[in-house]
Amino acid sequence: MTTLDPNIKFSPAALAKVEEIVKQYPEGKHKSALLPVLHVAQAEFDGWLSVPVMDYVAAILKLQPIEVYEVASFYSMFNLKPVAKHLIEICQTSSCWMCGAEDVVRYLESKLHVETGQITADGIFQVKLVECLGSCGTAPMFQVGEKYYESLTFEKIDGILEDLRTQKRSKYVEVGS
């Protein structure tokens, strides 16, 4: 029996969301709720899934912790380590590469004074390379939280970083919406 961390709890809004999600699947098939609920958990707990958070998710979905770990580690959107407030995910696949994705990476690295993967000293930004995000016709592009930023130019990137600097953490799920 795993002991749960008493400090890790969903907000009432997140709990309501979980309840709504579980209802989408037939009786006894609540395991299907795991991916959407992990998205909610990641949004609730600073953008990543710690072991205590995964244990908590296992408990509320009545699953074994291993069922949660093995799933969380399979999917690339689940972060198993702490991340910056704004994770900038740059597509580097074929069409984006052809249309200048490497220049975007280089520009971001020099502007933010970090290498890909590292978190900026103020904890605000982190650059990550990802594969095709379905935005190939508007390459180069990156995604931050829910939002797609497309047909990027250096000028556009300056504006985006300026905006993000003052914004809250970008969330994949606006809990309770």
Binding site: T93, S94, E131, C132, G134, S135, C136
Partner: peptide, 11 residues
């Protein structure tokens, strides 16, 4: 799921 590189029609 549309994840095949080069494909963005379903989106």
């Amino acid at each position: 799921d549309e994840s095949e590189p080069g494909t963005f029609k379903d989106r």
